[in-house]
Computed example of a mutant assay.
Amino acid sequence: MSSAFPYHLFETPLGWIGIAWSERGLSRVQLPERDRAATERRLVATLPRAQAAHPAEQSAEQLPAAIAEAVAAIRRYAAGETVDFTDIAVDLGDADDFRLAIYDAARGLGFGETVTYGELAARAGHAGLARETGQALGQNPVPIVVPCHRILAAGGKIGGFSAPGGSVTKERLLNLEGVQVGPPPSAQGSFAF
């Protein structure tokens, strides 16, 4: 029987964020929902073995040092500070080699640096697999730490985003980093000039 993943929720300028971890590292980052309770429900739904680390007080002081550092870094990021997450250990669970390569390439992107799905695929050693790269990023369990929001559609368009709020959330994260991008694809369709 597998052990539980402890989790912790904390407030940021972006809203309530939830994280879960194992002894190997951060295993989930749940981006904000409409409130704390909704964020917690989504986190627990995506990680059935999640168990509140400190259910009564949600105290950051009682978190393992590496997790407390991750919380502090995410809070600074949400406040608009330039933060490098590459030193935060992650536990990507059962991610296959392709996804691991894509996530590793994404982690190599600096604050405010963007690439297209096709460019990221090539950096990861999988040229020509832009669509598959997008699918892998849609399964990213630790957004922000693995900065999938920095990957754009061809032509510099914002593209999709599987986190709560979709492309609006992606644009908000990019704006924190000083990045302005083109609009998301129109549901009615549009012409590119």
Results as ranks from 00 to 15, higher is better:
S2D: 13
H8C: 09
L9T: 06
L9W: 02
E11N: 11
L14H: 06
W16I: 06
W16H: 09
I17H: 01
G18C: 08
S22E: 13
L26S: 05
R28P: 01
Q30A: 07
L31M: 06
L31E: 04
E33V: 06
T39M: 05
T39I: 01
R41V: 11
R41M: 06
V44S: 11
L47C: 04
P48Y: 07
R49K: 06
A52P: 03
E57D: 11
S59F: 09
E61I: 13
Q62I: 15
L63H: 01
P64G: 14
P64F: 13
A65V: 08
A66Y: 00
A66P: 01
A68T: 09
A70G: 10
V71N: 06
R75K: 14
R75I: 15
E81C: 10
F85P: 01
A89C: 12
V90S: 05
A101E: 14
A101I: 05
D104Q: 14
D104I: 04
A106T: 06
R107G: 07
L109V: 11
G110E: 01
F111C: 01
G112Y: 15
E113T: 14
E113C: 05
T114H: 03
Y117M: 08
G118S: 12
L120G: 01
A122I: 05
H126Y: 11
H126M: 11
A127C: 06
A130L: 00
A130V: 08
E132V: 02
E132Q: 08
T133P: 12
Q135K: 10
Q135V: 05
G138M: 08
Q139W: 10
P141K: 01
V142H: 00
P143A: 12
V146H: 00
C148R: 04
A153P: 07
A153K: 09
I158W: 00
F161R: 09
F161E: 08
S162V: 09
G165K: 07
G165L: 09
G166I: 15
E171I: 08
L173H: 08
E177N: 15
Q180L: 12
Q180S: 09
P184H: 12
S186T: 03
Q188P: 04
G189R: 03
